[in-house]
Design a binder for these strands. Structure first.
Lengths: 178, 178
DNA sequence: CTCCATACAGTCCGAAACAGACGGTATGCG
DNA sequence: CGCATACCGTCTGTTTCGGACTGTATGGAG
């Protein structure tokens, strides 16, 4: 069974476990405002994956009789067990940093000397802005007990953003000096 | 034209620009030992993408008459121009951190209390090991002028690894104390 | 009550990515 | 000569992706 489950599967199972019975639209919003900052999950997949998980017996679904006829998914016992087994097992994968800016930096010799400075300047600004967003989130949610313990991922996000900012800032200084 | 080009396209164009005429096998090796540490590019794609770029006039290819009959790709002038244009344009994409460990951390409430400690311990070890790999690479290549300037990306990689190590180490201490 | 904008609910589609398996053969070494 | 390995590639089915598209419930303003 576990070999049929992808990161998207676990994100769907996990999000429903955390927040309770959810529609795909709920999932889209919840994921987009949390882990979606680090790893984007396409909207269409958050509609198709729950149905697949229903077919695998890990979720069950019910559809509203009237109104918007929304389709709400809830975790089954096997679904919860799959999620818990995944959480308990070793994690061989190393993280991937998919960063276009880094690719550009790697190939910078091929371009113009000014390219790197522009890139670094823009990255410094982008990372500063993202840090501001995360810090604002920390402030806004710190007093909500229900979500405060989920801020731990935001801490990792901030740590990584500060690291990137450090790197691009020092690169910017180096290009300024050259 | 640029809307037909993906990150993989630019990685192929850029790698050939940096190292000169290359076979797909060359690309596979060169990418795997550099940016492939951060962003994995599947082997089969490094065979199919150059042909697509030939069809678009950005690469040209020649096949050996005898021996291994290897197929070597070289950059055309339009290919070089595309690459340089990409390097010069703004970079709206923010990096994505695809990290299974982070997903597990986010959903940790659903699992057992011991899960987080095990995860943190494992991540500390993994990041230490990756740092050792990168530091070894830095040492080994520092004296080779031909590649020394391409170590800049490795610096970013190290910065991010140290950030991750800091985070997981402090989390490990916190779980030890709890 | 009507109208309109927006939020919500979803599907579709072509292209790209992916993982892994598979087959073939040149090359170098014992 | 034989064998192991490096090199050269293709194929395949599935999943992911990005974006476009359609439909409709809902709430608010006039």
């Amino acid at each position: 069974m576990a070999d049929r489950l992808s990161p998207t599967s676990y994100v769907v199972l996990g999000t429903i476990a955390l927040r309770g019975p959810s529609t795909s639209y709920d999932l889209k919003r919840a994921v987009g405002r949390s882990i979606g900052y680090f790893w984007h999950f396409p909207h269409a997949q958050l509609y198709s994956e729950p149905q697949r998980l229903v077919d695998l017996g890990l979720l069950e679904a019910e559809t509203e009789e009237g109104g918007r006829r929304r389709r709400t998914f809830r975790l089954t016992d096997p679904g919860r067990e799959e999620l818990r087994a995944w959480l308990a097992e070793p994690t061989p994968e190393h993280f991937q940093m998919r960063d276009i800016a880094e690719l550009k930096l790697f190939f910078n010799e091929v371009g113009e000397p000014g390219d790197v400075e522009r890139l670094a300047r823009e990255q410094v600004a982008a990372h500063r802005e993202r840090i501001a967003v995360y810090e604002d989130m920390q402030k806004r949610y710190a007093s909500l007990d229900a979500v405060a313990k989920r801020m731990i991922t935001l801490r990792l996000g901030l740590e990584m953003e500060h690291a990137a900012l450090r790197f691009w800032s020092s690169l910017l200084e180096e290009t300024d000096r050259a």
